[in-house]
Design a protein around this nucleic acid. Structure first.
Lengths: 344, 344
DNA sequence: ATGAAATTTACAATCGATTACATTATAACT
DNA sequence: AGTTATAATGTAATCGATTGTAAATTTCAT
């Protein structure tokens, strides 16, 4: 590598001190207009670029933030990340993305690895908890590294978060099914120690109770957000003596699996069984049988998460006033749940 | 933040020098077993963690590498990244992921931004070129920062790359269509200044020529890898006087768009028109009408790319022997192109 | 013209880890 | 015992940028 020009090189060339160069470049008010201009020009001339590592060492800030998500090949997380980048890049931050693949061990590894890389903060969506302890976050909290949850959060005192109103999203999705005349609505849930899934479950339950339908706990099945899991569960449901006539899934992926299984059994959607997903993944729109889903405005979520981080990192006070931002979800009705209007 | 313990703290506690601590921790052979153990123990005791920034400054290595891709919400790129991470994490590297969204300007921005962050190398899949100049890479090359292309490459002297044999993949896909009896095969191409698209085009062309079919340049359409673009183009093709009876698309996304449009026109797949995509995105398998596609073994590609990087970065010699790794693609035949065997 | 105030720039320490070189302690050998 | 080889540790410079404090220079008023 060609050796980079440093402020010392500039200083030598101009017969001044590195200190002056540094101040000139940083807009320190104690520097005369004349030298500032001179310095800036020669800096450009010599292709000077600030050595971030040196600056990081001095300031204690790396201008790197870690983003931890279960996976990046879902449109939802990819979009959140995009939102985060849009907000953080202009401020000079870089984003290090880590995937947990929903494994607690990888989550731990990622956190340590990010701490080791001296990140200025961690924005994360937690993975499914194999067990209940939160040692993972302890390391972050102990070191006082700003931690912000988005979407999949845990309630931890003092930790900010940006989420959507999952209860409301689930409630409206379920209500939509009820309004369409479906009576026996199953719910494909997920690990309910993660709040979003708990809230989706609660929203579903409340909608059923509010409508006077019978709530049947046996129609709530906990599974993972994977197509094949959806198929497996749906198969079981279809074999029930009194099978459901609608599915509200907490994930688009399981919803997709369910749809495949239903078709394979020769049933029609939405005539025989209706399906609603969650997240508004692009494929829900692109399917021939487009899937009704709940949009979570992921880019907006990413932007907000980044903003909360910036606020925290820029507040010199240790006020750590925890902030809970909650977005409103939007139900997108598509073919998979829309019964053709009854013909007279 | 709690102040971290440094090697000086350890040194003070043991009444030795920071230098000794450093050497002990780094396994320098000039340190006695006794003090080494002592140092290691107290380090653990005091929760010592190496300050990467300081080390980076001293060594000139940041242990960060940049990965630039058009987007991360495609399974292909997400998987390549996963492969890269699997290879690089154990070696202590971190991966900074940047998206270009196929915009040249963002590509430029990302490269500069990564250089500014002092990355030790850049692994990238180039975005569509709005124009022909390669100034983007010049900055990297000039600074002698290891650059490695994967998948979407440009031929630049001295730059290594990891790709698949796109020609072969396209050839076999097209041959498969010909073998199925299709005679008028259109090709949805993409910016052919990017080699993968050029090679897919050439493979398609060669397969047609080899089979004795007539090659019709007007059946080759250049478009972008988006569902809606696929629809648009397909609409035009269907309006042709002598419309194609098969489509070989260089992208799964345009293939999907094409399929939607074909169905909307009341035609049957694969009876009336057959469709083959490229990349083996998960949705190609999950569709009710599963889509024939070409698998690119993305995780393997990622791992190999990372390996090539490690080789380059660890070779103190400036040998810069460029390395071209080429993987073999695999055609996955599915419903969208498989004619039911003729019944007698 | 002279002292005080204001402005500008230089000096030197610092962030934490690494490392060439110097120094001390220990062992070995004649 | 004396000399040398060897092992173990210390000293101090270095990476590049920042910043409190000191010093130099200029400006201004009298």
């Amino acid at each position: 590598m060609k050796k980079k020009t440093t402020i010392y090189d500039i200083a030598k060339k101009l017969n001044i001190t590195a200190a002056t160069v540094s101040r000139a470049l940083n807009g320190n008010s104690k520097i005369s207009e004349a030298t500032r201009k001179l310095v800036e020009e020669t800096a450009k001339e010599m292709n000077y670029e600030q050595n971030r590592l040196a600056q990081a060492l001095k300031s204690g800030k790396s201008y790197n933030v870690g983003v931890i998500v279960p996976r990046i090949d879902s449109n939802f997380f990819a979009s959140v990340i995009r939102g985060i980048e849009e907000e953080l890049y202009p401020k000079g931050y870089h984003v290090i993305i880590c995937q947990t693949h929903d494994q607690k061990s990888l989550e731990t590894e990622n956190i340590n690895s990010l701490l080791n890389a001296q990140v200025d903060g961690v924005l994360m969506s937690i993975s499914q908890a194999q067990n209940a302890n939160d040692d993972n976050f302890d390391a972050l909290i102990k070191k006082n590294v700003p931690l912000i949850f988005f979407d999949r959060k845990k309630d931890i005192k003092g930790i900010s978060s940006v989420t959507i109103d999952d209860f409301k999203g689930a409630y409206e999705a379920t209500k939509h099914l009820i309004d369409q005349g479906y009576k026996r609505i199953a719910h494909l849930s997920n690990d309910r120690s993660i709040l979003i899934f708990k809230n989706r479950y609660l929203g579903y339950k409340q909608a059923i109770l509010d409508s006077g339908l019978e709530f049947d706990e046996s129609l709530v099945i906990e599974t993972q957000s994977k197509v094949l899991e959806g198929r497996k569960i749906m198969k079981q449901l279809l074999e029930l003596e009194h099978r459901p006539d609608a599915i509200f899934s907490s994930s688009d992926f399981t919803a997709l699996g369910a749809i495949q299984e239903i078709k394979e059994h020769g049933l029609n959607i939405p005539e025989d069984i209706s399906v609603v997903g969650f997240s508004n993944e692009p494929f829900t729109r692109f399917m021939e049988l487009s899937i009704t889903s709940v949009d979570q405005s992921p880019i907006e979520m990413g932007r907000l998460t980044a903003q909360v981080f910036l606020e925290e990192v820029n507040s010199d006070k240790r006020v750590t006033s925890e902030k809970q931002v909650v977005l409103t979800p939007e139900l997108i009705v598509r073919k998979s749940s829309l019964r053709t209007p009854v013909k007279h």
